[in-house]
Amino acid sequence: MNAVATREPFEEPAVSIPDEGTRGRLLQWPQAMIKQKPMQLRRRSDPVVDEARLRQQAIGVKLRQMFDEVVSEPVPSEFLDILRRVDDAPEGKDD
């Protein structure tokens, strides 16, 4: 099962995530995805590129957040009811 072996981050977040306290939501970005390179080690000749990268990173975080909000909602009982009903059915072919 190599389901996540080739997973790629939404955007290479080559900069560190800013201030955890005030931007708490940004923290949801999985740590494994964040390459914590000090800014000085990277060529920073173009602040526009850095800005774009940060924006892209923020979009990635928000996308995940949006998705994860739904994932963390409690599952409506109908879902489990439906699955429970198939237990009672002799074959898996019910509706």
């Binding site: 080739t6 996308l63 949006m66």
Partner: peptide, 14 residues
């Protein structure tokens, strides 16, 4: 495509 890769955690090939 964006949701799958950017939020769903899928690799491009997946």
């Amino acid at each position: 495509a964006l949701i799958l890769v950017g939020a769903g955690g899928f690799a491009y090939d997946e």
